[in-house]
Design a protein around this nucleic acid. Structure first.
Lengths: 114, 114
DNA sequence: AATATTTGCTTGCAATATCAAGCAGTGATT
DNA sequence: AATCACTGCTTGATATTGCAAGCAAATATT
């Protein structure tokens, strides 16, 4: 299992944001963000995770879980049926590690030219 | 709203438990429990709150909220399942060529292992 | 080429979570 | 009454979060 830091770094880079851009949007220092992404922080506070979840477009619960906090049981796991034409449908269920690789690869092909 | 410590103390006393009984059940020191209940702790960790929620029979979310942590709302939870939370959102708008590359790459990494 | 800006990072430092150990009061047992 | 166990509490110590300030390498601008 990978470090959750790699995951949130992948999220940021997938959006082509710098640490200081995220800092301005979240009021979390770039110094601390750097530590987060390099795995030097065990469990960032829920508030910090909430801010990150908002700008990266992932669910708060997901980040809480990745960091190792207890999560509230979601009894219904409804699959997104809306959007059978979306890429999400074609990709299907993917693991966390696969998602990191995909996001990294997307960043790569988008920065490839120029 | 006042001190959440008063609330946590009320929960314990409603069950006629001592600090040391709770300590044995939760592995949270009686010293710290005392500080919690007397309002000397700002934000106990989610894990601590989870343990307390289990033995006091209240929801984890409720304690999280009382302490001031962000909570996931029901509405957002439902909506997010097929919206912000899906990989489609994280990827964002994507061209046909990019999608083909992504899907090929996904196939590649899935065949790569083993 | 020289200078300025950007970017990720390291390093103390302050604030806080949590515990181990001990202390005083209260109630039970001898 | 003396002792014992139990109760809540305080205090000092340790670990961790998060920040301000600075730094070196990369990139942009003149």
């Amino acid at each position: 299992m990978q470090n959750y830091g790699d995951y949130i770094r992948a999220l940021r880079e997938a959006k082509n944001m710098t640490l200081r851009e995220v800092e301005k949007l979240t009021d979390v220092s770039n110094a601390y963000l750097s530590q987060l992404e390099s795995g030097k922080v065990k469990q960032p506070s829920p508030l910090t995770l909430h801010k990150l979840s908002e700008i990266y477009g992932v669910s708060y619960d997901l980040l809480m879980e990745k960091v190792g906090y207890p999560v509230t049981e979601r009894k219904e796991k409804l699959k997104s049926e809306s959007g059978k034409t979306s890429i999400a449908y074609r990709i299907g269920d993917i693991s966390d590690d696969e998602e990191i690789e995909l996001l990294n690869y997307l960043k790569f092909i988008r920065n490839r030219k120029k």
